[in-house]
Design a protein around this nucleic acid. Structure first.
Lengths: 201, 201
DNA sequence: CGCTTTATGTTTACAGCGATAACATGAAGA
DNA sequence: TCTTCATGTTATCGCTGTAAACATAAAGCG
């Protein structure tokens, strides 16, 4: 007999054999752990342990670790989209509202570094930009709509696409550089770079 | 006795007990492996195996795995700086030369995804931007000089700094989005976004 | 030359990981 | 009530990073 750390033993008592909604519990525990851990340091076993369940129970709800991480992404994407919508609503529509979505993007990244990084490295096949369903893409749709409304009326689809990518690249680059510690996560820098935000020059 | 896969056994014969320059061999094997593996899938043991040496031999040259990875970063940074300098030299100085350094940056990232990502996540204390020694920062110095030469003469240090960050963020964001598959790694997109490259609008 | 030190290899071992297989429990439907 | 099946469990595997103890051979010194 070799106990490898998979078991729970006595903890089972205070819960009953079945959990109720283990899937949701795992996701929420995962998000919690990501607040002070990098993705690499997040183990499936630790998530299970946090919830008080054996490691292999996870496999009843997710085919593998990657699938669990993807579920965390979906939650994160919903949170990001929500933050952006709130930021825009608070500033009113138009140009300054658009700038605010960019700031919200960077702030979200800085506030949730591990989750944000996970979201950006874990992608649905095809990429976020051209996908068009799921909570993951609400943020993308918002970005494209905003840019469309700011471009001159005669703009081609290609111009719209390029302007979208440019805006996204700018905020995304700033976010990543701050996450990686290459640029200080300074509110002043965020403001300055997102002011005349994007492709309208 | 339990053989855990650490040993080399007969391979020792065809090499002699001592290697000669194991450190360099490990670095070059690591870079080679990173060409078709993500950083997460690169194990210290595999690097050692590739070189034909026991896993623990690595520890004679690097205190831990992270230190080995950092050595890979230094090599990568040197390569990136070189690519940028070549690109600029080929295009001549001035604005179009500057644009070319941006393109070289994105192209390097797309051509060496795992290495580039490693470089950007593994940072010297303080970040690349404000560091001022080592091969790692040649690229940064080049960027700042270029921006300085393009700004109006009366620009303040702060304006210079902001313009530097903005340019870097734009190319970096584009590079990351392409690496993550969020934007297709299309030469046309790279060209379009790096043309009126940066903060001169 | 021979002897000793030291750099650089080796094996062995361990705890933690993701994942599979076999078994246990208990809620739901017949 | 009996059976089925979703959802738990333990045991085990091969892999990882890393430490400790041991082996080899090159370098320095008499």
């Amino acid at each position: 007999m070799k106990n490898d750390g998979n078991s729970v033993n006595m903890a089972v008592v205070q819960r009953g054999y079945h959990h109720g909604d283990l899937r949701a519990a795992l996701v929420s525990a995962g998000l919690e752990l990501l607040k002070d851990r990098s993705v690499d340091d997040l183990s499936l076993r630790e998530v299970a342990r946090t919830v008080g369940v054996s490691a292999t129970a996870v496999y009843r709800h997710f085919p593998d670790k990657q699938a669990l991480l993807y579920a965390l992404c979906e939650q994160g994407a919903a949170q990001l989209a929500h933050a952006q919508q709130e930021a825009m609503a608070a500033a009113g529509d138009g140009k300054s509202g658009f700038d605010e979505t960019g700031r919200a993007y960077v702030r979200f990244a800085v506030a949730n570094p591990a989750l944000f990084r996970l979201m950006m490295t874990t992608r649905p096949p095809g990429g976020l930009l051209d996908a068009d369903e799921g909570a993951v893409n609400a943020a993308m749709r918002l970005l494209r709509q905003n840019i469309a409304s700011l471009l001159p009326p005669g703009a081609t689809d290609d111009e719209l696409r390029m302007a979208t990518i440019k805006s996204w690249a700018l905020v995304h680059g700033l976010a990543m550089l701050m996450l990686d510690g290459q640029v200080p996560a300074d509110e002043r820098i965020i403001d300055a770079l997102t002011r005349p935000f994007a492709g309208e020059c």
